[in-house]
Design a protein around this nucleic acid. Structure first.
Length: 506
RNA sequence: GUCCCCAUCGUCUAGCCUGGCCUAGGACGUCAGACUUUCACUCUGGUAACACGGGUUCAAAUCCCGUUGGGGACGCCA
């Protein structure tokens, strides 16, 4: 059987380095065995998925240099490769399970489920999950609900007892008692599938032979195995990779560490260096060589060389490795080409020049304005952030509010940024000009610079977040205690904002 | 809380499966020095780890058990 692997990102935010990491291992495994590597977009979450995010993921993954044999942009024999375009396939399969008696309809309301969860939490019973309420509904009751068009979901039936044996390519047999497995929702009330159903149906139809994914999926593997069994399909081999971590060992997250591929591109990391570094996460060359290309990685790739401790994503070593790629693999001609490819090109210039033109008296003035567009982190001092009307605490608060509020933003347009930040100023009861003042040095390193919202827009989410975090740290950062208090105040503002939004809509 | 996974320098890791060659190797960082008009690069040297306790064995970083620690999962998110 041909080896076929896939990476299946969900377009709900910035393209994540974790996606590139998983993609890299899937790619290497497939290519090592002469197989195919597939890209599939898992956009069944209507609430959070955006076309913008999908495009960025595609762009970022392309930028790394990884190529896929099948995908939404390149097509292939098993398409479509976007789950939102396969909706009927999933509902048909849900029906099959219903007919086979492997799944059941559940008419429980969100309220009942919430209460149930609360009760389970507080009773400290340990076991959480659906209580099987709708399992015993009579055919008449079900029909009555269906006729009344009561919103409902389809859930997977789970064996009452016994254990599920999950075979992991790295860990061997893992036993998980069926009693620990929840009766997972397969089809949501909007008719779209959850990850579990869509994933299994697609992996089967796309003939995926090996599922290489993050460790966070181990606990739901029994659900997937159950689904394969229920359909009468043979499951793929499972392989769970250790998770990339923050320096504090928690799962890599943007709140603690820049996670977007775009950020690393922006600060001038070479794609081959990023992939090289990602390849060093949990994996090593047989001769322990640190610097290697994807081709070399494929040549020596072996799942046995994966170490299971979760690696911390260390930007310092990435930077060192990147330096080696710059120095050892480029002559001056090639380097100048890389630089032009990166940012010294008309396209980049065109994106910032509209803001610059009114400020240029001499062409050479470009120098002091482009610095902060081309830099990664800024070297600023605490007194650059000082403001005559605000206390350092207030300045810090303005910066932190900006950071939090920007994180909530769905669209990264300067209008959206402008609206969001103006709201922050109102919430903090500061005049806009006072509120914005410290943001200039924090984000640009200068007291006055190009228009704030456009600048933030061009710099991008992760870089802006990183600079704001740097600035906040300069002012003492957010202490554990302060975080709680500020978060409360921030949430209050957020709540009022949402309420205002709702009354507007009504 | 319940379940699952994991455990070698501060960090990435080699060694572990197939016990002895391990007084545990390499790399990042850091410190010291050399080179260089400065800086950087480069080079040399130093620093620093088998989580703990029990077993098995002539012999354990390597195998087994327990403890501790870390992480993950417990959504009509993926």
């Amino acid at each position: 059987m041909k080896v076929r692997t896939r990476v299946a990102p969900s377009p709900t935010g910035d393209p994540h380095v974790g996606t590139a990491y998983i993609a890299l291992f899937n790619y290497c495994f497939a290519k090592k065995h002469g197989g195919d590597f597939i890209l599939r977009i898992e956009d069944t979450d209507q609430e959070r998925s955006t076309a913008e995010s999908e495009q960025q993921i595609l762009n970022s993954l392309r930028w790394t240099g990884l190529t896929w044999d099948e995908g939404p942009d390149v097509g292939g024999p098993h398409g479509p490769y976007r789950q939102s375009e396969r909706a009927s396939l999933y509902s048909e399969h849900a029906q099959v399970l219903l007919d086979k008696g492997e799944a059941f309809r559940c008419f429980c309301t969100a309220d009942r489920l919430n209460d149930l969860r609360k009760e389970q939490m507080s009773s400290g019973a340990g076991k959480l999950g659906y209580d099987g309420h709708c399992l015993s509904l009579s055919p008449e009751e079900i029909n009555r609900h269906l006729e009344a068009e009561t919103p409902h979901v389809v859930r997977l039936k789970i064996p009452q007892e016994g254990v599920c044996q999950v075979t992991d390519m790295l860990r061997g047999e893992i036993d998980i008692a069926w009693s620990e497995v929840d009766m997972q929702v397969l089809l949501k009330s909007d008719g779209l599938p959850t990850y579990h159903l869509a994933n299994v149906v697609d992996d089967h139809h796309m003939q995926i032979s090996h599922v290489i994914r993050g460790e966070e999926w181990i606990n739901s593997a029994p659900k997937h195995i159950r689904l394969y069994e229920a359909f009468g399909w043979s499951p793929p081999q499972l392989c769970h990779l250790p998770l990339l971590r923050n320096p504090d060992k928690s799962k890599l997250s943007k709140r603690k560490n820049p996670t977007s591929i775009h950020y690393y591109q922006k600060i001038g990391i070479l794609p081959e260096a990023l992939l090289n570094y990602l390849g060093r996460m949990a994996w090593s060359m047989p001769d322990e060589e640190e610097k290697f290309s994807v081709e070399q990685m494929i040549k020596h790739f072996d799942l046995d060389r994966i170490s299971l401790g979760g690696p911390i994503f260390d930007t310092e070593k990435l930077t060192w490795l990147n330096g080696r790629w710059i120095r050892e693999d480029h002559d001056i001609e090639q380097l100048s080409e890389r630089l032009m490819e990166w940012a010294l090109n008309p396209e980049t210039l065109r994106s910032i020049l509209p803001m610059l033109q009114p400020r240029l008296d001499r062409l050479s003035d470009i120098g002091r304005f482009t610095g902060y567009f081309l830099s990664g982190h800024l070297e600023i001092t605490a007194d650059q952030l000082a403001h005559k009307k605000l206390t350092p605490e207030q300045v810090n608060q303005a910066i932190v509010w900006t950071m939090w509020r920007l994180d909530e933003l769905k669209s990264w347009s300067s209008e959206a940024i402008s609206d969001a930040l103006r709201e922050c100023a109102v919430e903090l009861e500061l005049k806009p000009r006072d509120f914005f003042a410290p943001l200039y040095p924090a984000i640009t390193g200068m007291k006055s610079a190009t228009p704030l919202f456009d600048t933030i827009g061009v710099l991008g989410r992760d870089l802006v977040r990183a600079r704001l975090r740097d600035a906040s740290k300069l002012l003492g950062g957010v202490s554990k205690k302060g975080e709680v208090r500020w978060k409360k105040a921030y949430e209050l503002g957020r709540k009022q904002r949402l309420e205002a939004l709702n009354t507007e809509e009504n």
